[in-house]
Simulated scan of single mutants.
Amino acid sequence: MRPALEVADIFRRHGPAYRLAHDGHLGRVERRVMAAIELCRTPALGGHVEACDNCGHSRVSFNSCRNRHCPKCQGSARERWLAAREADLLPVPYFHVVFTVPAEIAAIAYQNKAQVYAILFDTVAATLKTIGADPKHLGGELGFIAILHSWGQTLTHHPHIHCLIPGGALSTDGQRWIACRPRFFLPIPVLSRLFRRLFLERLQAAHTARHLQFFGTLEHLSDSRAFADALRPLRKTSWVVYAKPPFGSPGHVLAYLGRYTHRVAIANSRLVSMIDATVTFRWRDYRHDNAQKYMALAADEFIRRFLLHSLPDGFHRIRHYGFLANGCRRARLATIR
């Protein structure tokens, strides 16, 4: 059933005014995202006739845009992806570990999405691989799926990576499975400190190589000394890394994973109303016992926040590492089983 209100409805009504007001600052990717969502399942994209062989009833079904930012197009993509992952599940506990960067880094990331998001993936992978391989912890090769999310519940820019990790490691000689302790994966403080150090090293290297660019209020960070000064306090703050309790069964793993893999910034089901130029939606306040609350934004601000999460062309937001990497997954899983 079609929701009473969709992101597409907001874009169709208020998108033209938004394009006009932000003409000089709206990028090619954002324009394409808006156009795709507006045209999704409309006559503009064409369609096909679906007919019942028994009663002869027929209907016209319009084509989907298949844009990865479109709330309507992620359901079928998610189901196909999960079906492919079902064969990869191991009969072991799975852990959900989340890596988050501070707000100061998020601001830099917004102006350098491809570069900083790539650094985020590389740092998370290096952190998990290094600690997992340490004989003081597991002493073997981990396997994990990493998924980038760039939003918070109120659509603010909040880059973080969700990792789903089988609770154990393949020994360095590839001959045995090393199980983690019950209900404990890896020490969070150790992960957090290494994650912070590796990320800041890589970010500094990207700046030195002039791979980063800065505009507006961040323009001063183009200067190497100003950039170093901005990073210095971040070396002393705690970076948020947390792990959730392990899942009960492989079925729970798949159901949980499905909530994260093909999610977009906001689902149509969270939209409440669009009255004149005001959009209201539901959100969860995790700081107050996950309480459900409502937020009303001007349509212009709602569209701006939604577009904050447009990904660069060709950027992969789901990645596989270790013994779950695409090149070796089948053989490694057979060995582990």
Rank of each mutant, 00 (worst) to 15 (best):
M1Y: 12
M1K: 11
L5Y: 07
L5K: 15
V7K: 01
P16K: 09
L20Y: 04
G24N: 13
H25R: 08
H25G: 00
T42K: 08
P43W: 01
G46S: 10
G46T: 11
G47F: 00
H48Q: 10
C52T: 03
S58I: 04
R59H: 09
V60H: 05
C65I: 09
N67H: 15
N67L: 06
N67S: 09
R78C: 13
R78M: 11
R78N: 12
L82I: 06
A84C: 04
D88N: 03
P93G: 06
Y94F: 05
F95W: 02
F95E: 04
V97A: 08
V97F: 08
V101T: 15
P102H: 00
I105N: 07
I108H: 15
I108S: 10
A109W: 01
Y110W: 14
Q111K: 03
K113W: 08
V116H: 04
A118F: 02
L120W: 09
F121W: 08
D122N: 11
A125F: 00
A126T: 09
T127L: 05
G132V: 12
A133K: 11
T154Y: 09
H158Q: 15
H162K: 12
H162Q: 10
L164I: 08
A169T: 14
T172W: 11
F185S: 13
I188M: 00
I188N: 02
F195S: 09
R196F: 11
L200A: 01
L200E: 12
A209N: 07
L212D: 15
T217N: 09
D223P: 05
S224Y: 01
P233E: 10
P233F: 09
K236C: 06
K236F: 09
V240T: 13
A243R: 15
F247C: 05
P250C: 03
V253K: 02
A255R: 05
G258N: 03
T261G: 02
A265Y: 08
A265M: 08
L271H: 07
D276R: 12
T278H: 11
F281T: 00
D285G: 14
H288C: 10
D289M: 09
N290H: 15
Q292P: 03
M295G: 02
A296E: 05
A299D: 15
A299S: 15
E301N: 10
R305S: 03
R305F: 04
S310K: 01
P312L: 01
P312G: 02
G314T: 02
H316S: 07
F323G: 12
G327P: 00
A331K: 11
A331H: 14
R337A: 06
